[in-house]
Write a protein that binds this DNA or RNA. Structure first.
Lengths: 260, 260
DNA sequence: GACATAGTTCCGAAATATGGAACCTGCCCG
DNA sequence: CGGGCAGGTTCCATATTTCGGAACTATGTC
C-alpha cells in the first residue's frame, strides 16, 4: 500500500454528504492509526490537496483540487456535444437533464441541465449514486459485457431502493430488457416521486461512455408526456450516435436501411 | 522527496494553458527519468487523479479531481457572502466581477460574475495570474507583513506587463499606497485595454482572505464611471467587512465614530 | 489534580520508491 | 526487408520512505 494509495483513501472519504472532516473522522473512516493519519493529513494539507479550517481545524478539499477540477472539463468533445443536444430537449420538454459517467458500480454526475418545471435540482454535479438504481446508469451497464458487470457489482449486493433490482438476477433481467428494447426507464428509485429515462452514448473514437437522462416528477407527468420524452430521447440518441460514431449506430444503420 | 510530492509535482504541470499532457511532456516538465515517470503516471491514473485519453494516450486530470473540486466550495461562508454582494454591484454597473485567493505570489480565480457590458470573460475560474499584476492581488498582498511579501515574491523578480511594478521597490511603493488610501487600481496590466479596481477581504473569524475586483474596458469607461465603481466598491467593502468581522473594520469604525 | 480528548513526535523494522539498463512495440525510411 | 528510433514498460539491487506502537504535549473539564 503506497503513500499515494493512502492519500487517495483519505481523499475518497470526502463526499457531498461529508464535505469536511475532522482528524477523528478521518481516523475512523480509514481505520488507520493516529500517527499515520497525522502525518498523511499534514502532507495533504502542505501540498494543497486539502485545506484546514483555521478555526474548527477540520479538513476539506483544497485549492489544488479546485484548480484541477476545473481542468477536468478538458475532454469536452463527447460531453459538450451531448450537453448541447440535451439542452435543447430540456428546453422543449421542461424537464431536467443529467449527464453522468460510470465509475465502478456507481455513476458520477458531470453536468446538469435544469428544466423549467418546478422540480428542484436534486443531484448536483459530482454526486455519486449506484448506477444500478438510475435509468442512465443501467443503460451504461447494459452496454458492458456480462463478466464486466459481474466484476463491478460488489460481492454483497448493495441495498437499493424498493423499485430497483434487488439482486444480481433481477439486475440482469432489466439490463437484458434495455439491450432488447433500447429503452431504459426508472421510477421512484433513488428519489421518491422522481422518474427518468436515459440512454448510454459511447464514442466510437475513444470508447468513452456517458449516460444521458431526463428526469421528471412521476405524479406531475402523464403517460403521453412520458411517451413524448421517449421519442425525444430516441431522436437525441440517434443523432448523437451518428455524430460520435457510436458502435451502436452501425446496428441502427442496418435497421434504417433495411426497412426502407 | 516522497511519493506524494512527486505526484503533486506532476499534477501541478497541468494548467489552463496545458490541460492535457503526453508522457514526454510530463518527463520534460518534471525532469524525472522515464521509468519513474511511467510508474507515477500509472499510479495516478489507476487511482483516478488522472485520466488517459484512450486514443491520443495523453493524460488529463481525472474524475476524482472533478469530484473533489466540486467539494471545495464547501467553505462557502466568506466566498458566497462576497459573491452575493458582488453580484449586486455587477448588476448595477454592468462590469465583470472576480473573486480570487492568494497562493504564493499568484492568485487563483474562484468565482466570476459576468457583467452585462460586452467585455468577454477573460479569466475563467481556476485561472492563475501573478498577484503583483492585478488590483485585487495587490490589495491582498498589501495586507500581509513586509517579510511575508518578501518571502512570497520569487528570488528573481518575475517579468510583468508594462504597467505593473517592475521590481520589488516599485511593488512596495504601490502596496504602501494601497495601505494608505485603501484603494487598489490596475490598468492595462495582465490584459491590454482592461482596467480593474479591487480590495481584499479578510474574515475576522477564520483569517481567510479573498480579493474582490471589478474589471472594465479602459477605453469604454469615463473617469466619472470609474469614480462610480470606486464608490460602489468602497460601499461593498465596508458592508462585507462589517459582516465578516474583518480586522480592518475596527480601524474604519474609529473613523466612522470619530468624524461625526 | 486527575482524567479525558485531540493530536504530534520518535524510532527501529519493513515496505516502497528510485533510476539505469535492458527490453518491448509500432512506425517510418531507405 | 532490415535498421533506426520515438515512446513506453519491466527488471532489479540499492537507498529512502513509510509504518505503527508508544511516549509525549496541549487543552480543556469535572
Amino acid at each position: 500500500m503506497s503513500a499515494l494509495t493512502n492519500a487517495i483513501e483519505i481523499l475518497r472519504c470526502f463526499s457531498s454528504a461529508r464535505p469536511d472532516l475532522s482528524f477523528a473522522d478521518v481516523m475512523a473512516l480509514t481505520g488507520k492509526p493516529k500517527s499515520s493519519t497525522s502525518r498523511l493529513l499534514r502532507s495533504l494539507r502542505d501540498c494543497g490537496l486539502l485545506e484546514q479550517d483555521p478555526h474548527t481545524r477540520r479538513y476539506r478539499p483544497g485549492l489544488l483540487t479546485f484548480e484541477l477540477g476545473r481542468l477536468h472539463r478538458a475532454h469536452d468533445d463527447l460531453i459538450s456535444m451531448a450537453e448541447r443536444e440535451l439542452r435543447e430537449v430540456c428546453a422543449r420538454t421542461g424537464h431536467t437533464g443529467y449527464i453522468a459517467v460510470l465509475d465502478g458500480y456507481e455513476q458520477v454526475v458531470l453536468r446538469i441541465v435544469p428544466g423549467s418545471n418546478p422540480l428542484r435540482v436534486v443531484n448536483p454535479p459530482g454526486q455519486r449514486t449506484p448506477a444500478l438504481a438510475t435509468s442512465n446508469g443501467r443503460a451504461m451497464l447494459a452496454r458492458l459485457s456480462d463478466e464486466d458487470i459481474r466484476a463491478r457489482v460488489p460481492a454483497t449486493y448493495p441495498k437499493l431502493p424498493r423499485n430497483s433490482p434487488q439482486n444480481f438476477r433481477q439486475l440482469m433481467v432489466r439490463l437484458d430488457e434495455i439491450r432488447r428494447t433500447g429503452v431504459s426507464e426508472a421510477a421512484d428509485e433513488s428519489i421518491e416521486g422522481v422518474g427518468s429515462q436515459g440512454f448510454a452514448l459511447k464514442s466510437g473514437e475513444t470508447g468513452e461512455m456517458v449516460g444521458i437522462a431526463v428526469s421528471y416528477s412521476v405524479q406531475a407527468t402523464t403517460a403521453a408526456e412520458r411517451a413524448n420524452v421517449r421519442r425525444e430521447l430516441a431522436a437525441m440518441a440517434a443523432k448523437l450516435r451518428r455524430l460520435t460514431g457510436d458502435p451502436l449506430d452501425q446496428d441502427a444503420a442496418h435497421i434504417r436501411t433495411g426497412t426502407r
